[in-house]
């Protein structure tokens, strides 16, 4: 029994991840309740989606899964599928833009967050990262960067680089999927048009197919670090790499497809709403 429990304990405890997940989950829950009370209720599905995202992110970073991710290429790819795609995607479906402002204590918002948010460096950085050209480049670029064999080698050996890798994948994905799934109405500041979102989602697909296929179809082992430090269990390096390639290739691209479908649905329903005659207020 105790041996089962230790799989649920962090392999390498990270206060930052714990804090991130507790804050992300806690503030959202608080906000969700206050939304209800203030008469602007957010449904159960966004709640479930958001919390599932947070829990998934925590599980892949702070359980025995993390050990496996360090010692098996395809599980590492699965970890990044959650960090870079699935987890943030589910979180952004939870309408955090609506809920979190209710969750964060107002005094903290007024004293810290608002001034920070409106400061020039933050505005500039945000504008850069959420730029319609930079965002997809960064989203795909990070996948490529951490999969460069030399970079990957050092990231897997150095605990701090490993942390940096996982955080960069997670934080970039939160920004990226926020940009794509932004639920705010038309003409909200910094909001990207639906057409542009679909173009971005389409653009990020081919590079992911290419790198996934490159791994899945390679005749040699590309990532020697697992050969050096040892895989979690005996499996041929090529089989490991082939599964890793498929994980990078297929589910990652499916996320784009689902993204496009969601954006299309929203686009159509918004068009329908705007074409209806304005409701008469009595």
């Amino acid at each position: 029994m105790t041996s089962d429990i230790h799989y649920l304990l962090p392999w390498e405890f990270s206060p930052a991840v714990l804090l991130f997940c507790l804050l992300a989950g806690g503030l959202y829950l608080r906000g969700w309740r206050r939304c209800r009370r203030s008469g602007q209720p957010v449904g159960y599905w966004p709640l479930v989606s958001y919390l599932t995202g947070v829990v998934l992110i925590y599980l892949v970073m702070q359980t025995g899964f993390d050990y496996l991710a360090q010692h098996m290429l395809w599980i590492h790819r699965l970890q990044h599928l959650v960090l870079h795609h699935l987890g943030p995607f589910l979180m952004m479906l939870g309408l955090p833009g609506t809920v979190l402002p209710y969750g964060v204590p107002q005094r903290f918002t007024a004293a810290v967050l608002a001034p920070l948010w409106h400061s020039a460096p933050v505005r500039l950085l945000y504008a850069l990262l959420q730029n319609a050209l930079v965002a997809p480049l960064l989203f795909v670029g990070l996948i490529y960067f951490w999969l460069l064999p030399d970079i990957h080698f050092t990231a897997m050996l150095s605990a701090s680089r490993y942390q940096l890798m996982n955080w960069s994948m997670l934080l970039d994905a939160l920004l990226f999927w926020w940009l794509i799934l932004d639920p705010r109405p038309r003409h909200a500041a910094g909001r990207l048009g639906y057409g542009a979102r679909i173009v971005i989602l389409t653009l990020v697909v081919p590079p992911q197919i290419i790198i996934g296929a490159h791994m899945a179809l390679a005749k040699d082992s590309l990532y020697s670090v697992y050969n050096v430090c040892g895989r979690a269990w005996p499996i041929s390096p090529l089989v490991d790499q082939q599964i890793a390639g498929l994980v990078t290739w297929i589910p990652a691209c499916m996320m784009s497809v689902i993204g496009v479908l969601l954006v299309l649905r929203r686009w159509i329903s918004e068009n329908r709403e705007s074409s209806l005659p304005a409701p008469v207020v009595s």
Binding site: Q70, H71, L157, A159, V228, C229, G230, P234
Partner: peptide, 21 residues
């Protein structure tokens, strides 16, 4: 950041140990 593990013991109690190279 290295792994090691134990294989199943055979009838004579011998088992293999996998370890990093």
């Amino acid at each position: 950041r290295v792994s090691y593990g134990y294989g199943k013991a055979d009838a004579r109690g011998r088992y293999e140990v996998s370890h990093s190279s």
